Computed example of a mutant assay.
Amino acid sequence: KVSQLLIDLGVTRSHSRPKVSNDNPYSESHFKTTKYQPDFPQRFDSLTHAREWMDGFISYYNHVHRHSGIGYHTPASVHYGTAELVREQRAATLAAAYEQHPERFNRRPVPPSIPRQAWINDPAKRRQTEQQSS
C-alpha cells in the first residue's frame, strides 16, 4: 500500500491549506516558477497542449534553469554529480578575474557552496518540535 510505504520512508502527511505558501514551500515555489514563465499560456487548448508545455518546462527547469538554493546549479547537475566540477571551474574563473582586476572586488570571490541535503520534512526539526511540545 502506498500510504504504508510513505510512512515507512518517513514521509509525513501534509495538511496544506489553500493559499498558504508555508504549508508546502517546495511545491508552492515550483508552481510560482511555472506560472511566471514568459510563455506560460493563459489557457491550455487541450490536455495534449498542457502535457507538451509541461514536458518542455520540466526539461528546462531540470537541465537549464540555475537554482539559487543549490548554488546556481541545475537540478540535473547536482543529481548526476557534475556540480562539483562546475563549481571548481567557476572558482578558477573567479580567481582569474580577481587576479587580473582585484580593484573590481571588495574581497576574493568564491562560488556558492552546494548544500548536501534538502528536506521537505527535516527529521531533526521534527524531533526538536516534538521535544518542545512534550
Rank of each mutant, 00 (worst) to 15 (best):
Q42A: 12
A50C: 14
M54T: 15
H63I: 00
R66D: 01
H67D: 02
S46E: 03
F57W: 15
G69H: 03
S59K: 14
H63P: 00
E52F: 06
W53K: 00
S59F: 11
S68K: 15
D45A: 15
D45M: 14
S68M: 09
D45T: 15
H65T: 01
Y61G: 01
N62L: 08
Q42G: 14
F44V: 05
W53Q: 03
S59N: 13
H67K: 07
D55E: 10
S59L: 14
A50S: 13
G69Q: 11
Q42F: 10
F44A: 04
S46M: 05
F44R: 12
F57I: 02
Y61K: 00
V64Y: 08
D45F: 10
H65S: 11
S68R: 14
G56T: 05
T48Y: 03
S68L: 08
E52H: 13
T48D: 09
H63L: 09
H65M: 12
A50D: 01
P41I: 00
V64L: 13
D55W: 10
A50E: 05
H67F: 03
F57E: 00
D55P: 03
A50H: 08
S68H: 14
F44M: 06
S59M: 08
F44K: 04
Y61M: 04
V64D: 13
S46R: 07
H67Q: 11
H67I: 08
D55A: 10
P41C: 01
F44E: 05
L47C: 09
H67S: 06
G56P: 05
L47Q: 11
H65E: 10
H63Q: 13
N62K: 09
V64C: 11
R43Q: 11
H49Y: 06
H65C: 06
R66V: 11
H63S: 12
G69N: 09
A50W: 03
R43A: 07
R43V: 07
G69L: 11
R51F: 07
P41G: 00
F40N: 06
N62A: 02
S68P: 04
W53A: 00
P41W: 04
F57C: 03
G69W: 02
I58E: 10
Q42K: 14
D55V: 08
Y61S: 00
D45R: 15
S46A: 04
N62W: 06
R51L: 09
R51T: 09
H49F: 07
H49V: 03
W53N: 01
L47Y: 11
F40T: 04
S59D: 10
D55C: 04
Y60A: 00
D45P: 04
R43W: 06
N62Q: 10
I58G: 02
S46V: 07
A50G: 11
H63K: 14
I58P: 01
S68W: 11
N62T: 06
P41S: 00
F40I: 00
G69R: 09
G56L: 07
L47H: 12
